[in-house]
């Protein structure tokens, strides 16, 4: 399993410029943070933004296989077979009280997902986890500081 970690603070422009894949992945997805792993570029943004402690939020996600872009990928070819979204507070060693559901968003290009039902029920440091299962399993982690 490959682990990739990136702070939310390192987002948007700087991350997008660091990778052609990221740039392509986020081209049609404004206001997103970007995380990269050896296999994928993943852009995400929450709804609502910013996250409010104790309130449910959703995450809009675009996944781009490194070999291509979401728009240019043949459906199902290089995209992960599944995407799981979860979160935890590492300092407290607990997760969320709710299980996020992930659905494929159709009609907006390949690699679009929406995770719903998340809630950060305490202020502090959270890790938002994206687990992409394909040929290999990639776990991407974004840190979120919540006041």
């Amino acid at each position: 399993m490959r682990h990739v970690r990136l702070s939310v603070a390192c987002a948007l422009l700087s991350c997008a410029l660091a990778s052609h894949g990221a740039l392509a992945c986020t081209a049609a997805f404004t206001g997103a943070a970007v995380i990269e792993s050896p296999g994928y570029v993943l852009a995400w943004r929450t709804q609502p933004a910013p996250i409010v402690v104790g309130k449910h939020f959703a995450v809009d996600i675009v996944v781009c296989p490194r070999a291509g872009t979401a728009a240019g990928t043949k459906a199902g070819m290089a995209l992960p077979q599944s995407l799981r979204v979860d979160a935890q507070m590492p300092d407290h060693r607990h997760g969320m009280n709710y299980k996020a559901s992930v659905s494929v968003v159709n009609g907006e290009g390949a690699g679009r997902y929406r995770a719903e039902g998340l809630m950060f029920h305490m202020p502090g440091r959270w890790e938002l986890l994206f687990e992409l299962r394909g040929v290999a399993t990639d776990r991407l982690v974004a840190e979120v500081m919540l006041k």
């Binding site: 402690v53 104790g54 009280n97 029920h121 305490m122 202020p123």
Partner: peptide
Amino acid sequence: CNTCHFGANFTNNEF
């Protein structure tokens, strides 16, 4: 204490 007892109603409404 405000880790759990936060907001105007002093609770995160969780467990």
